[in-house]
Amino acid sequence: MGKMPASRLVLNPDELNSDPVPGMDLAVKLGIGQLEIRSAEGANAVTLPDDRVRYLRTLAEERGLKVAALASPLWKWCRPEATPERVDTFGFPTQVPPEERLGWIERAIEAAVILGAPVVRVFSHLRVEPELTEQLLGDLLLAKALDLANSAGVRLLLENEPVCTVAHAESLLEVLDRYHGQGLGLWLDVANLHEVGQATGEVVSSLAPYVGYVHVKDYRPAADGGGRVFCPAGEGVVPYGQVLPLLHAAQPGLPYALETHVRDTPADALTSGAAFLRSAVPGGVA
């Protein structure tokens, strides 16, 4: 029987600082060998010129690190005439004219190739006024993007994002069933799934065959009963104890990316999160 591939830890340097160096150095300190790139130098990574993207890769390689994923903002957008909620796109506009979108898709794929990132995150259009909300299913641009990604040797992974149109299991499965054969996979954010009340064993098992990447963050309900407070992974309400063994059983060797969102002490939260994942994922993570 062949040896199962080891699960991998991934760290996003911008969780620590807009300067990527402290986050990369923390990854080395924690024995994490892979990075997720989302923003750097105060700008979204897909907006950086080629030389700055190459510099990010150089910084990583100087430390023995590889880029596991480009966390792009693609499809976390709406038409200019729509009114989006306040959402975090890390320096990328939310209102994007349709005629500009293909250019951004091409740019994200180019950036991924420069970084050596095998996967690129996509979303599913922001939910705005009902008459202006666009749908990912049947979006001709998605089919075009999948072709471009396949030609470039990278894979597009859809994140389940509550502010976007595809966040619940039913719509996720509908989109993934349709486009999986063209290369689309799932960038599973377990906390987002819990936020919509679906981080159950049954749902995770149904989604697991499509998962190519896992975002890990955690939170507790705010003391005043309104909203939530982010905390280190394993210290909140997201049911990782149930979910992680199911994911590992279905897809051994997944990358687990720490996305702490703890603003006051991000390095401590990332350190705690890494220790939690190493103990919680069956077989551990490298």
Rank of each mutant, 00 (worst) to 15 (best):
A267C: 12
D264S: 14
H248A: 09
G253T: 02
A267Y: 09
P239F: 03
S272P: 00
G273S: 14
L270G: 02
G253D: 05
H248K: 13
V262G: 13
Y256M: 09
T260A: 11
A249D: 11
Y256P: 10
S272M: 14
A249Q: 14
Y256D: 09
A257F: 03
Q251S: 12
T265P: 00
V237Q: 08
G253W: 02
T271A: 15
V262F: 05
V243P: 08
L246Y: 05
A274L: 11
G273P: 07
A249E: 14
R263W: 08
V243H: 06
G253V: 02
V262L: 06
P245C: 08
V238K: 06
T265W: 07
Q242K: 10
L254I: 02
H248F: 02
Q251T: 04
A249W: 00
P239V: 03
G253S: 05
G236L: 01
G241P: 04
E259C: 08
A250W: 03
V238E: 07
P239D: 04
P252V: 01
R263K: 15
L247N: 11
T265Q: 15
A250Y: 04
L270N: 12
L258V: 15
T265C: 11
R263E: 14
E259M: 08
H248G: 01
V243G: 07
E259Q: 14
A249C: 00
A257Q: 10
T271R: 15
P252T: 06
T271E: 15
A249P: 00
Y256I: 06
P255D: 08
P266M: 02
P239M: 04
Q251E: 09
P239T: 03
A249Y: 00
Q251A: 12
V237H: 00
E259T: 05
L247S: 11
V237G: 00
S272D: 12
P266N: 04
A267L: 09
A269N: 13
A250E: 10
A274W: 10
D264L: 09
A257L: 08
Y256Q: 10
P239N: 05
D268L: 13
A275M: 11
G273Y: 03
A275K: 14
D264P: 02
V262Y: 05
A269G: 13
Y256F: 14
A249R: 14
G273Q: 10
V262Q: 13
Y240S: 01
S272F: 05
G236S: 06
A274F: 09
V262N: 12
R263G: 01
L258K: 07
L247G: 11
Q242G: 00
T271I: 11
Q242Y: 00
Y240D: 02
L254Y: 01
E259P: 07
L258P: 09
A274I: 09
Y240H: 03
P239W: 04
L244I: 06
A275Y: 08
P255G: 07
V262M: 07
D264I: 02
L247M: 10
A250V: 05
A250R: 05
D268N: 11
H261L: 07
A250P: 09
D264F: 04
A249S: 13
P245S: 08
G253L: 02
P255V: 04
G273N: 10
G273E: 11
A269S: 15
A274T: 14
G236M: 02
L244E: 06
G273F: 02
G253Y: 00
Y256L: 10
H261G: 08
H261C: 07
D268R: 12
L270Q: 10
G241Y: 00
T260L: 05
L246N: 04
P266D: 03
L258S: 11
Y240M: 01
G236Y: 01
Y240C: 01
